[in-house]
Design a protein around this nucleic acid. Structure first.
Lengths: 166, 166
DNA sequence: GGTGAAACTTGGGACAG
DNA sequence: CTGTCCCAAGTTTCACC
């Protein structure tokens, strides 16, 4: 899958498509300094090998009346692998949970949730999350504001590291 | 900006482009059930009014040797607005910090960070984050695994709510 | 990696409801 | 104002070097 090695042009393609996923192939080819056909071949290879996992429009949650964003820290009673996996499976079925990360330390999971308003979040919280099997504790924190929300990875850091090794 | 009201076709367009941001306009038009030109006009309007804030390729961080993902809970000494804003400004300059959310409750900010490995994260942590002005406490949690990571909002929840109101 | 050519897509104009 | 039909310009994607 990811055993394929990337050259500088591949990394530039990834950086450009991460910044603007709807760029036309000719524009992309111009920016990375090759002609369109080999550029498209590289993009297809990056998609097929899993470097590119998809393309998404970034929609404004607030404009769509999802006014509330919440981080929920979840502790479980049992941390046996089957119980961890069972909780993750449950998260798949909850549309308000957008991300589910298993953590080290005191807390077992952090969930990033969205909801149209506080009351619909609270009915999810009490009706589904805290009442789910094996859930010991849930601490929630409302997002007051978000001034940085960048997807993906910082390619400039990657290039710096590669430059230092050379 | 967002005062523009959306009809069902607009919401379908947003849902489709959130799921696949590289879909061609004709494919999109077919899926939402109108012809291509008005479909494109709607997409442009959604972009111009801010419902669509951008398009991004989803790249595989691990494949690009960003092996480490960390959530950092940050408490500040002073929560005066100017001090909160100063911390947010600093986050803009740290490429390893991908998201910076201000929270209510005991902790002031949660940061989602990526790094190539543990040692580079720790040098960022001690060299930049914990040593930044006004930072009182930083608690970090390594992401062990992530089984759900969906961008954006759940459109099915939105449609359900609209159906119930009708 | 580049070139050329066919098929398709984009995006505008003219026009109907 | 939003939809449909049509057409030129541009884009994708093929076979080939």
């Amino acid at each position: 899958m990811a055993g394929h090695k990337l050259d500088e042009i591949d990394r530039k393609i990834l950086a450009e498509l991460q910044a603007d996923g709807r760029m036309t192939n000719v524009e992309l080819a111009k920016r990375v300094g090759i002609s369109a056909p080999p550029c498209l071949r590289r993009v297809r290879t990056l998609e097929d090998t899993g470097y590119i996992k998809g393309y998404h429009a970034e929609v404004d949650a607030r404009a769509l009346s999802f006014e509330v964003q919440v981080f929920a820290m979840v502790g479980l009673v049992s941390q046996a692998e089957s119980d961890l996996a069972a909780f993750e499976d449950r998260c798949q079925d909850w549309p308000l949970v957008r991300e589910c990360h298993m953590l080290n330390g005191e807390v077992d999971f952090v969930l990033k949730c969205v909801a149209p308003d506080l009351s619909s979040f609270q009915s999810f919280l009490t009706g589904h999350l805290t009442s789910a099997p094996n859930v010991a504790s849930v601490k929630t924190s409302l997002v007051i504001r978000c001034r940085k929300d960048q997807p993906g990875v910082p390619f400039d850091v990657l290039e710096e590291r590669l430059a230092q090794r050379a």
